[in-house]
């Protein structure tokens, strides 16, 4: 007797659990005084969903509205319109609940600057509701995890920018929260400190399913650590997908960077023809084109008289910066 196994149809993937849901979020503020006052739209009708356990990024240049969005999510700022739900709680109606659901790393450390690293972390743990012994043991564990023990007794104000940032990051890890909101956490950090940050984040994701909302204007960081990213420009989300999904939008194109020694030799017909197509940043020209044409251009530039004026050149696959530009983002502001 034989039985024939009938392959069961693949079960539909369970819908990802939502950690944070933002709907129609709008925030405007007045800038200037008297007759010169004008209304600036910091966030315009933003909607997005962050899934539990993912590292979700907000990518955009300075002034794009990322921090305003985050301040609303953390209950620090009340939106003019829209709805914010964090882990099932309405944060617009109950902003005080945000502190009991998430840990926030802002851009400023003035509240902690004159404390030692050890006391800053311990005090934050106490203020997150931990009893004394638990606060101390969490402090010790986090300082060890981030290799901050040698700096433990030094005041934050006397540390380098990157070390201070790492100490502030340590304060977000004590008193466990299911959501970490990190506003440019690795600014000024050396590669060792950056690795410590991302290792600590990854550990919490793997062990506890912690969700991370990361604000950044660093393209490389966004491509490396994010599961999904919302590209923000002038207060609006202009795209939201995985970094790979977004880069697929510009698939096929490559980026050719030419760095001139001094002034570009625009008297040469090849260089003169490239000039209108190039995005110019000082001595660097960036041209986006097809791989075939890029290869051809490299051959012509490196094989002809223009090569003498060339300091460096590179050919790269598309980055999130290219996506950002394709989607109509402003040119400056992202860090490569």
């Amino acid at each position: 007797m034989s039985t024939q196994a009938t392959p069961a149809p693949p079960a539909p993937a369970p819908p990802a659990e939502i950690c944070c849901k933002v709907t129609g979020l709008t925030k405007a503020y007045r800038s200037g005084r008297g007759a010169k006052a004008r209304t600036v739209l910091a966030n315009g009708d933003i909607s997005l969903e962050i899934r539990r356990g993912e590292v979700f990024g907000l990518l955009g240049p300075n002034g794009a509205g990322k921090s305003t969005l985050v301040r609303q999510l953390t209950g620090l700022l009340r939106p003019d319109q829209g709805r914010i739900e964090v882990l099932g709680h309405d944060i617009v109606r109950h902003p005080d609940r945000a502190a009991r659901l998430l840990a926030y790393l802002g851009q400023e450390s003035t509240a902690l600057d004159e404390l030692t690293v050890s006391l800053a972390v311990e005090t934050t743990a106490r203020l997150r509701g931990l009893p004394h012994p638990a606060a101390r043991s969490e402090r010790d564990a986090v300082l060890a995890e981030l290799a901050l023990e040698p700096l433990a007794e030094r005041p934050l104000a006397k540390l380098s920018g990157g070390q201070r940032r790492l100490a502030c990051f340590a304060t977000t890890l004590v008193g466990e929260r299911p959501l970490l909101v990190l506003d440019e956490p690795t600014t000024g950090m050396d590669p060792v400190a950056r690795r410590a940050v991302w290792a600590a984040v990854e550990r919490r994701r793997a062990d506890r399913g912690t969700t991370v909302l990361l604000v950044t204007h660093n393209v490389i960081e966004a491509e490396t650590v994010l599961n999904r990213v919302a590209v923000v420009d002038e207060g609006r989300v202009i795209a939201c997908d995985t970094p790979g999904g977004l880069k697929a939008l510009v698939d096929g194109d490559v980026r050719l960077d030419l760095v001139w020694r001094e002034e570009p030799p625009t008297h040469l017909p090849l260089v003169a023809a490239l000039a209108p197509r190039a995005a110019v940043h000082g001595r660097r020209w960036t041209v986006r084109t097809s791989p075939d044409e890029a290869r051809d251009l490299v051959a012509q530039v490196t094989g002809g008289p223009a090569f003498a004026a060339l300091d460096d050149f590179s050919l790269a696959t598309p980055s999130l910066e290219d996506v950002y530009l394709l989607l109509g983002g402003r040119h400056e502001g992202l860090v490569k």
Partner: peptide, 14 residues
């Protein structure tokens, strides 16, 4: 503390 955004640290703690 208010001018530099330092109050945010306390305001995002319960």
């Amino acid at each position: 503390l208010r001018a530099t955004g330092g109050l945010d640290h306390y305001a995002t703690l319960p």
